[in-house]
Design a protein around this nucleic acid. Structure first.
Lengths: 163, 163
DNA sequence: TACAATTATATTGTGCACAATGTATTTTTG
DNA sequence: CAAAAATACATTGTGCACAATATAATTGTA
């Protein structure tokens, strides 16, 4: 007998099978979920990443200061190359204002406009309506969400040592 | 007492909190995982979606017939608008051949070239190396993958009735 | 206080995703 | 068999993602 049994060392074929990869499951599930959001967000005229930005802004609307672009980026794990044009489109639609800082002229703070705040009322029904007609127990959703956050946290913790 | 307790009916604020949404957990985890693939795939000069296409082609290389573009699309849940330019780029790099069907001139079949087949040898180490230095038990990965496939299956089953 | 290093955002370019539309080729139907 | 419907890709346009680079402002340092 060798030190490891067959079940311990899957073949290269098995390791490379599409359906055995976490990456593809994540990739496909993510697109299936965003596809489910799409018709709901279309009613708000928002894309999915734009909706995420609005969620952050709605959540922090009570804060003393509007978030910087970099703070939105940290929260959503997006860089300025993604956020800058996205925020400009939201600004064109008068949902947000981008204002250059007075003390530090490098920073841009993003705050909601009146219509941006109003849009929240139309968005509150989205989370409930999303899983309408989909037979999944809320507890399983919550557990899956927890597992994904755990994975994300571990991956982000490891990065600094690698690379 | 009302018919439902507070814990049964979370507030709109709670429902709309970014961290309470499955969608964001999926979105962020997916990008974190693909970011982990990126340096490994750069050694093969493949993007992540290109890698997924190659995985399908490597897996089906023994098949009697090469897959159609539409079959790749079904497998990966991608449409021709995504696949056509991606496959053209793989063809430019001489990893695949795209050949118009002889019997049915509408279909395009995609097969591996010699170098496309050779590239597999360089790719076999990717799955193992991916989670190197990341402290997650394989069993948890497998379970998460199962949950995601389950979710995907449910979402795809529901679609036809809705929309 | 000059000047180097750092910080925060913007710009450019490539490659997905996906909706909408176009085009050529079957297949079905009257 | 001809016209209509369906099929399979291709094209176009918009909006992310992200790498690489640029620009401007601030901070640290000799």
């Amino acid at each position: 007998m060798t030190s490891k049994s067959c079940s311990d060392t899957p073949s290269a074929d098995q390791l490379m099978a599409l359906d055995n990869q976490l990456c593809f499951a994540l990739y496909a599930a993510n697109r299936a979920v965003t596809a489910r959001y799409r018709p709901l967000l279309k009613e708000l005229n928002l894309t999915y990443p734009q909706y995420l930005v609005m969620l952050v802004l709605w959540q922090q609307d009570q804060s003393v200061q509007s978030p910087k672009v970099s703070e939105l980026g940290q929260r959503l794990r997006l860089d300025s190359g993604t956020l800058t044009p996205l925020l400009k489109r939201l600004e064109e639609r008068a949902l947000v204002n981008r204002t250059r800082g007075t003390d530090d002229e490098r920073v841009v703070r993003v705050c909601l406009t009146h219509s941006g705040r109003l849009l929240r009322a139309k968005a509150v029904s989205v989370p409930e309506r999303l899983m309408c007609g989909v037979d999944v127990e809320p507890a399983r959703i919550a557990s899956l969400r927890g597992e994904l956050r755990n994975l994300l946290e571990i991956l982000e913790r490891v990065e600094p040592s690698e690379q």
